[in-house]
Amino acid sequence: MSAPQPMLIDSHCHLDFPDFADDLDGIVSRAEAAGVAKMVTISTRVRRLPELLKIAERFPDVFCSVGTHPHHVDEEDGIPAEELIGFASHPKLVAFGEAGLDYFYEHGSREAQHRGFRVHIAAARATGLPLVIHTRDADEDCAKILREEMANGPFKAVLHCYTGGRELAMTAIELGLSIGFTGILTFKKTEALRELAAELPADRILVETDSPYLAPGKFRGKRNEPSYVVETAKLLAELRGVSLDEIARQTTENFFALFNKVPRPVGAA
């Protein structure tokens, strides 16, 4: 008899994106067949929350967040924390974000990015739900805001699809936050990121796809999907010198500790 498949979680995907529109049933079925027990489809615009909720309500193992991606802060500038908090009563809404800072593309003004970031932190702090943070080429300002806001009161968060420097990662760890890794780990010329993934505390790491983007390893160049999170987990296990079963167990436990509104599968410890 073959060994049971390790249980994994895709903590960050975008099932509402057009890339998946004609294949949602297949996407979810393949993920479940690959051992992916839960998926969180992440919001990029508050005003599109109904579309995410429709997907989350359709599939028992899919959950969602609500938030404004830094690319869209100018069009959703001014949404108050109270409005975000009001969505938290929905049983399938388990996080805020993704929100944060993106100085690489700067599709949204920096001022609005900063305001939006702090508003989402306030919602996370008020509800106890985690914040999914997007940060790119903004390490110094991200660390500054995280320190200032944590001083105002604790909140939970994950720096998703991490590609930043070691200093920001260690600031996040010091503040009690988590770090999410994607298929970028499998790309060439990511030595510094791999070294970081190998040394972070075991109880602070998550795996994700950020699909439909960033397909890992042998799927590079194709549409990414939640089932491919297995490839990232395999490499993360190799980098850390542990088995796939162990990395699956640890990252799954970390997920449920952080996204504690998501129910554990029946029979899971």
Rank of each mutant, 00 (worst) to 15 (best):
T209K: 01
R48Y: 04
H134R: 05
K222I: 02
G153L: 07
D139S: 10
A172Y: 05
K54N: 10
D139C: 07
R147E: 15
R223H: 03
I9F: 09
H14V: 10
H114L: 15
L131M: 07
A124D: 02
V266M: 08
C161F: 12
S65Y: 06
R204C: 14
H69D: 03
L244V: 10
S243N: 10
S227V: 10
R194H: 03
A34E: 11
H69K: 05
M170C: 02
P212M: 12
S211G: 15
A33M: 06
R166L: 06
A56E: 09
D61K: 14
E208T: 13
I145S: 01
H134K: 03
G26V: 08
G100S: 12
V66T: 15
P265I: 00
H69G: 06
T163E: 15
D10T: 05
G26H: 06
A237I: 09
V207R: 08
P4C: 11
C13L: 03
T251F: 06
H12D: 02
A169Y: 12
R47F: 08
R166F: 00
T41S: 14
P154N: 13
V230Y: 04
F104I: 03
H69V: 03
D141S: 02
P60I: 02
A3C: 02
A99S: 15
R48K: 14
K234G: 00
R136N: 12
E82H: 08
D102W: 06
P265A: 04
L8I: 09
E231P: 00
K218P: 14
A237S: 07
A88T: 11
L52R: 00
H90D: 09
E140I: 11
L15D: 09
H107D: 04
F59S: 03
I85T: 09
E149F: 04
L101E: 05
G165Y: 00
